[in-house]
Design a protein around this nucleic acid. Structure first.
Lengths: 193, 193
DNA sequence: ATGGCAACTAGACGCTGTAAAGATTTGTCG
DNA sequence: CGACAAATCTTTACAGCGTCTAGTTGCCAT
């Protein structure tokens, strides 16, 4: 059961790996079913047996992205202090750090119109990925007993997601004191002060 | 020089109108050069003479979008009080209101990878569209003489753009107290308190 | 009036996603 | 052990897409 035999053996994962490589190296427009099949060394129709159509493959890749995004936040929270405000900052920084480290994947997850948001596994992974920030804000609300509705959580999520989106889109270039290449890490540290 | 004659007369604007209609009614994936040509009643190759390629048409449409977005904010600022904090809120609300009223166009402007960000006219329109919020925050900074660098402006832009992006993506559904259809207008009013 | 030129059409090419049908391997049951 | 069913992959085909080239039409200035 090698890569050269008729039956690949692990084609589904091989196609996902190929898709991520193409996305990272050539961008979302080059990410096609046939390109993934070529890179994996199979016929152009093979991916359909594992993903159905292009939406299925992109949705599966986005699902993996949300899972990794969740892990990044959880890992950074493990090494964080117990202070609730500090933990909220750490969760937000984890959210943004994932976007800065994986800009193409982040864009695919949140911006590609071909992704199927009816997919149950995707929605579950998405909700898990936004949960660390949600929980951190809710913990603050409960502690100070100022927690009204969800507006605090939505404000925090908007701030974090907006910064991540603008940064991965390259739109913060020139927005920061005219520097063509803003120090995103420095801006990120100031974002929650 | 009517729509039925060999020479259309105003094909460029007709194609832009067709593109906006397709985008609004059928989404970004249906927005193709050939579909615009069909709707305008010309041959499939006609758009190339006015826009060069698909990126040219989408970039021109996005340019119009940024111009309208700038107008919405300016109009709302005309009827706004002189208080600097209030004016900053009005500018941000105008930014978001444009996104809520034109979700498909907003997505095209900020999310479509086919848009050419090297285009000078597009960059100029984009910078004009984000200027109302920028100026309002800078006026606050100057007034209170607390204005450090650009972090205040970037925080405000991130908050506004993040809310607009999440709302137009439909991701705020379910984020607000389990309601499937959150009252975005009510959330928007609370966003800057 | 007529020549030049801009606007538009027609056709072709390679790319894409997807569907149908055939080929090959795996695994299971008699 | 052998045969058959199911899963996996290939081959072929088709329509739609962007874009290029060549050809056609009609306006406009000379």
């Amino acid at each position: 059961m090698s890569e050269t035999s008729y039956h690949h053996g692990d084609l589904r994962n091989a196609l996902l790996a190929a898709a991520e490589q193409i996305l990272r190296q050539q961008g979302p427009e080059a990410l096609t079913l046939r390109a993934c099949a070529r890179l994996a060394g199979v016929s152009h129709a093979a991916p359909a047996h594992h993903f159905g159509n292009i939406a299925g493959l992109l949705t599966a890749l986005a699902c993996i992205g949300f899972q990794r995004m969740c892990q990044v936040q959880q890992q950074q929270l493990q090494a964080a202090p117990a202070d609730l405000v500090a933990r909220a900052k750490v969760a937000g920084i984890g959210y943004i750090q994932f976007a800065l480290d994986n800009p193409a994947l982040f864009d695919l997850m949140f911006r590609d119109p071909r992704i199927d948001w009816q997919d149950a596994a995707l929605v579950e992974a998405f909700k898990a990925a936004r949960r660390p920030v949600f929980d951190a804000i809710k913990a603050q609300d409960n502690d100070s007993s100022t927690g009204g509705g969800n507006i605090g959580w939505i404000k925090a999520w908007s701030l974090v997601h907006g910064f991540a989106t603008l940064a991965t889109s390259g739109l913060l270039k020139g927005a920061d004191s005219g520097q063509p290449q803003p120090d995103l890490q420095q801006l990120l540290r100031q974002l929650f002060d």
